[in-house]
Simulated assay, not measured.
Amino acid sequence: MNRDDLESALARDDSTSARAALTELRTGADFRLFHSQTASACQLWDTWSHRHQVMLDTRVTPRTGLAEAVGRLHAAGSAQVYLATITSSRRRFIVFLSEDLSRSIACM
């Protein structure tokens, strides 16, 4: 996956986090695709929904986009998902990509 492919995938996602990640990517942020393995969206939902709930229970402010990402992972069901990160000097994003890498399922 190259930068243009990731930009295209993020451009299809209308979430606030995806738009922010796309802006950072377009201004030169580093990115990395973890292409050696996929996970099912429901497995990732299980992990991230638990983390989100613990944050809420302990009154820790969840990272921007976490609640929406959890909902989108749940909606994706058993679909296989790749993870990517976008890191700039100001922020770090986690992007959940469809198995064919053509679209962002969720971003936080």
Rank of each mutant, 00 (worst) to 15 (best):
G77C: 00
Q53T: 05
L66S: 09
P62H: 08
S102R: 05
A18E: 12
L66R: 07
D13G: 13
R103E: 14
L101C: 12
R92A: 09
S89P: 00
V70A: 13
H35G: 10
I86K: 10
R3N: 14
W48G: 05
D57I: 04
F31C: 07
L10I: 06
S104V: 10
G77L: 01
S49Y: 02
V70S: 09
E24F: 15
T16E: 15
R59M: 06
N2Q: 12
A11E: 15
S17E: 08
D14W: 03
D4W: 07
T85S: 15
T38S: 11
A76D: 00
S49T: 09
S98Q: 09
S98A: 14
M108Q: 04
G77V: 00
R92Q: 14
D100N: 15
Y82P: 12
M55F: 08
D30R: 04
T27I: 04
R103L: 06
S102D: 02
R3M: 15
Q43W: 13
H52T: 01
Q53C: 01
I86S: 04
A67V: 02
D4P: 00
A106G: 03
R103Q: 06
R19M: 05
F34M: 03
D46H: 13
S89G: 02
M1W: 08
L66E: 12
V60P: 05
